[in-house]
Design a protein around this nucleic acid. Structure first.
Lengths: 349, 349
DNA sequence: AAGACGTAAACAATCGCTTGTCTCGCACAC
DNA sequence: GTGTGCGAGACAAGCGATTGTTTACGTCTT
């Protein structure tokens, strides 16, 4: 049996309104009545119906978090930070993943509007303008990562990859590296392109224009074919910059199978510092992105913005830094080349 | 501006009831009217208010998924399977993680009841009886994994670890291994204890009673201290069975730092087959747990159970199987022992 | 002692949607 | 021509909370 506020009211001998006021502390109620009501609540094991509440108040304790892919560990900590921040303030989180599918993104956004979410953090970069305005037009606040500039109901968090990337480049330069390669994330991904640009610019600046520059998917077998390209170069680069740790791990795997030693033959640098970067063999040198902080900042940005009268968005910046581990070492002296790329092309079983 | 059903009704020149019926296809409405309504919906960009709907129907399109920890990749695919199954049927998923905290578990469950969830999949094993009945008493269906037996409103999915474990034991036995060690998950975790039991029983059966048998946390630095224990044994075991892939990866990391070669010196076997098991160096031999299927099955179990008149739960079983990779090899012939355990105790930086 | 005032709680409208029931109008049958 | 049946929609009563307004009852003032 599930009881309603009226049941509680009857049992306590008061009106439903009083029960509501006791529970929400929204009006002064005498100690005695209050106690009686609370007892009744306890005895009936009463739970208020959130939907009725939301309907009556027109407010929905709900925030949305849109990500691309749940299986990507990049998002795990973002989720964690966001949820933690939201729960601390008594809000619920609806987690929605788009699986990189625009149609799905659409329906996910629709769901958010229907659910009357207060705000939404969009942590995926594959979202279009129309979809965004669907949200803002319904009065839902939005915060993006590396995307769009702030305006009414829209905030932005920018991750400053440049700093970490510069550190990384200095690090490898100091180790004597001169020939670099870059394996960036998908060309359709805005953030991946940002990172790519920052890498290319930084390397060029140090007179280390990278070759080759390739792309790969964030998902499966990340980097295997990119590695093939790299190993087919006459004189193989001494260091490879990867657009994400996931890519880097795929790359290390493929390199090792091709008989390339890390870091003796080739150094590898990742981006993100996912927890597995630490457990990788060798532990991955990577550019740390404060992902949990990203989640927390995203929530705070929404919360703050929605409290403003004009609900004007703001811009936040998060810094990155280099985490040096064992996947980078002194540049090799000898020349390294593979006559054939067969061994690299061999697929992992 | 956000419109209501009445606005749509006015614009289409019909009553709100008709709009509702057109939108839900719950009553035959003439083609012409239907079209007019749909047009009005489009013109106003109308979104129905889910809370009002839920209040009116008393049904909530919401399912809950309770996990321990979002950062654990074990859960990622479970989530994915569950969400996919739910969305296919038009249901929403509220993801709740307990962070292994009983208090949090309590409040999470309360939230679920308040939100009037239809069903809840509890994929964490740290939950008590009282909390469970909170759910069932409110008419919320529950499905557990490796926990509780089916009854009204309660279903169970059992993962049959034994089969995969037997395969694994046979595999290492065939490779000549005789001395094994076991590093199980936390003693407070029911599933971890199941696995431990199955391992001990299986090994004993093959006359390979493991030594030592230790425990460790699922979380941080998994296995580092356990490795210390193992390396302090006079004649180090030739194979280590780990209670999860996460532990196995921590263990491999620690072993390698202690100068132990895998699999030449020691073989390692994990459980779960998380995606990183594949990228580990060496790729991890592990017992595959069908996690995405677990998620899907959990949802289906709920869905099915709730459609039953008596809403009686059922029991499902999922099988495991061995995935052989490179972390297991022929047992070493020579004796291996560390005089001091310093190198093993050295913490990773 | 009568009015003013403050406090504590009840009343009742409302949120937006669903759904059982009723009405209206028309076609068909006898 | 009246009765019957039926299709298409309107009406209105909820769902369970919140909240502005009102009421009842003391107490304080003068």
């Amino acid at each position: 049996m599930v009881y309603t506020m009226k049941d509680v009211a009857n049992r306590a001998g008061v009106s439903a309104a009083t029960v509501s006021r006791v529970l929400n502390k929204t009006h002064f109620i005498s100690e005695a009545t209050s106690k009686r009501v609370l007892e009744a609540v306890g005895e009936l094991n009463y739970y208020k119906n959130i939907h009725a509440r939301r309907l009556a108040t027109g407010q929905s304790d709900l925030f949305g978090l849109v990500i691309s892919e749940i299986a990507n560990p990049y998002f795990s900590e973002v989720i964690r930070g966001f949820q933690a921040a939201a729960w601390d303030r008594g809000f619920d989180v609806l987690l929605l993943n788009t699986e990189y599918d625009p149609a799905r993104t659409q329906s996910v956004i629709r769901k958010l509007v229907e659910s009357d979410a207060r705000g939404v953090a969009v942590m995926t970069s594959s979202i279009d303008d129309a979809t965004t305005s669907t949200l803002t037009e319904s009065g839902v606040g939005v915060v993006f990562c590396n995307f769009y500039s702030p305006r009414k109901l829209v905030s932005n968090i920018t991750i400053n990859y440049r700093r970490g990337i510069l550190e990384a480049i200095q690090h490898v330069a100091a180790l004597g590296h001169r020939r670099a390669a870059v394996i960036a994330g998908p060309e359709t991904n805005g953030t991946a392109m940002n990172i790519r640009q920052a890498l290319l610019a930084g390397l060029k600046h140090k007179n280390m224009a990278p070759f080759p520059v390739t792309h790969c998917d964030y998902r499966v077998d990340a980097g295997a074919s990119a590695v093939r390209d790299i190993l087919s170069v006459t004189d193989i680069p001494t260091v490879i910059f990867c657009g994400s740790d996931l890519i880097a791990m795929g790359v290390m795997s493929a390199l090792e199978e091709a008989g390339v030693k890390i870091p003796e033959d080739v150094s590898v640098v990742g981006i993100d510092d996912i927890s597995f970067a630490f457990l990788a063999r060798p532990p991955l040198t990577t550019i740390r992105v404060p992902r949990e902080l990203l989640g927390v900042t995203a929530f705070n940005a929404l919360d703050k913005m929605l409290k403003l009268k004009r609900r004007l968005g703001a811009k936040y910046t998060l810094e990155t830094e280099l985490a040096v581990r064992a996947s980078t070492g002194p540049a090799r002296k000898r020349r390294l080349a593979f006559r054939s790329t067969k061994s690299a092309a061999r697929s992992r079983s």
